[in-house]
Amino acid sequence: MSDRIRRGFIMLLMVGLFFLMVKGPIEVLPEASQLKAYYMTHFMNDTGALNSVTGIYLNYRVFDTLFETLVLLVSVIGIIYFSRHEGDY
């Protein structure tokens, strides 16, 4: 019974957080809007991409992409290490 009460409490907390997040005040920093304006006007000449997302994540933010793929590689290595399997290692 206490398990149901705990789950209901967590549920109410999550719903409240969700509505706080949706209804909360969002203010945009002026530097962020400047950066967005720069990216929107210059990405085609800087990167040669028509899709601005690809231009950003393969040219302006390459470090993010490289370490993100490194995270996937490390997780694959960890899964191979922790899952025992008869036969190969």
Binding site: T47, G48, A49, T54, G55, L58, N59, T65, T69, L72, L73, S75, V76, I79, I80, S83, R84, H85
Partner: peptide
């Protein structure tokens, strides 16, 4: 730069598909 984008996308695609396949087959044979 356009060729660079295409090659990088291709490399990332092959790498991610290899990684997710290995993860899935490890969970199968686990």
């Amino acid at each position: 730069k356009r060729v660079y984008l295409i090659i990088m996308n291709g490399l990332i695609g092959i790498k991610v598909s290899c990684g997710l396949t290995v993860v899935f087959y490890r969970f199968i044979f686990f």
